[in-house]
Design a protein around this nucleic acid. Sequence first.
DNA 1: CTTATATTGTGAAACAAATAGCAACACCAC
DNA 2: GTGGTGTTGCTATTTGTTTCACAATATAAG
Lengths: 204, 204
Amino acid sequence: MELPGKTVERLSQYRRILYDSIREGKNYIYSHELAKMMNLTSVQVRRDLMLIGYSGSQSKGYVIKDLVALIGKIIDSDQGQHIIIVGMGNLGRAITSYFAGKRDKLVIVAAFDNDLQKTDRIVAGIPCYHINKLREVVEAEKVSIAVLTVAPEATHDVAKKLMEAGVKGILNYTSVPLTVPPDVYLEEYDIVTSLEKLAYLVKS
Amino acid sequence: MELPGKTVERLSQYRRILYDSIREGKNYIYSHELAKMMNLTSVQVRRDLMLIGYSGSQSKGYVIKDLVALIGKIIDSDQGQHIIIVGMGNLGRAITSYFAGKRDKLVIVAAFDNDLQKTDRIVAGIPCYHINKLREVVEAEKVSIAVLTVAPEATHDVAKKLMEAGVKGILNYTSVPLTVPPDVYLEEYDIVTSLEKLAYLVKS
DNA sequence: CTTATATTGTGAAACAAATAGCAACACCAC
DNA sequence: GTGGTGTTGCTATTTGTTTCACAATATAAG
Ligand SMILES: NC(=O)c1ccc[n+]([C@@H]2O[C@H](COP(=O)([O-])OP(=O)(O)OC[C@H]3O[C@@H](n4cnc5c(N)ncnc54)[C@H](O)[C@@H]3O)[C@@H](O)[C@H]2O)c1
Ligand SMILES: NC(=O)c1ccc[n+]([C@@H]2O[C@H](COP(=O)([O-])OP(=O)(O)OC[C@H]3O[C@@H](n4cnc5c(N)ncnc54)[C@H](O)[C@@H]3O)[C@@H](O)[C@H]2O)c1
């Protein structure tokens, strides 16, 4: 099954919101309720759920627990996936402390830097190694995903090392665009671009 | 002129890359060169430039300085725009220290928090006020854009205050989806969603 | 001058995503 | 049970974006 990228993103967010609903004691939810919480239309919610083959009851809506379980089946790997943070500066540390313990199936197992002040210590609760131990740790810990938060000038070099070490997904937060071969997945996000887009919109 | 959102985002990135090229002493650039640096196709670059009405020379390509100036005319306001950071936690501080002095036309003028440890001091180079001074400062400094990095449970409440104070663009980094009226522009980004999307892609 | 080559600019086709429209169904009030 | 209401599930349509294909043009080499 080949899901549209946007649908996968929304599934991740549905799940987070559904966890909150479970915590509030809800068992069922209607498409329009979920839509409202996510600021989209009920049609879109239903279409996403149709794509993953989930059916609700016409009177009670969707069974939250079942839906959460199905989304988990689609997004999570059975054994979970291991993540590393590469570049333990301000942003790397913020992400690490935020993410720690948030998800069962996605675990930050290590961080890397080339600044000796930061290496061979626990930083933000995670062991931080020197970048030249990258390959070793990636192989030992079976790391599949890396978050790239190094200084911009190191981006290409470090990305190359990541791919050589066998990382299959890169989340690039540096301001430098990356190119990856087809067997590696890349997501990029740049805060300056978002701000400039807002500036353009607000201006008009 | 109504530009596609994706085009606006790329224009912001073209400009950043073009600044680097100017620094390296280049005066002209071809669509395929720019495309390669941004990891997209030359057709797409040309299409974007066509949309903003910029023409290059068939032999030398595009005049970098002119192109940068035109992108500036489209994205920037003449007087510039003022930005605030709301929620001076790990992420808010990382963004502030990163952004400081990066752009002429987009200036972070203040930060806000409700933690008395952080307020009425300079944090990461920016004055940090108590959240109850929000309206006052927004009006005095003519703030048009806010970056929202407060704790998740405060999101709706603070967003409401921002809009009441007259902010027209919100960049929401909390994990809580927001709804805004049509005269306010909203961009949202969530790191957990990106990681889960990567997890989905890598898994398959 | 003529030809080969490299480039830009753009209409049209293809693709991706969001939205509309509606049939089918379950439930409730009476 | 019958009619009204609110819901899901699905197909068709619309909208937005990217890619294809190629005409037009400038330059350089022969
Ligand atoms: N902080 C933000 O809000 C923000 C926003 C957008 C983009 N970025 C980008 O994210 C990246 C990190 O930003 P930051 O604010 O954390 O910067 P930072 O300077 O605080 O952190 C960069 C870290 O990378 C490490 N590093 C440098 N070269 C390295 C190498 N070769 N190998 C391993 N580690 C190396 C440095 O030692 C440092 O710890 C930058 O590329 C920046 O452009 C940051
Ligand atoms: N750090 C990350 O990488 C990351 C990633 C994704 C999302 N987020 C989201 O970004 C937000 C901030 O993350 P963080 O890691 O910086 O958390 P943090 O706890 O370090 O910072 C939150 C800040 O908001 C302030 N705050 C709380 N309530 C407030 C209120 N009513 N008014 C003003 N200020 C208030 C707190 O005093 C604190 O300084 C959170 O919503 C989090 O979910 C963070």
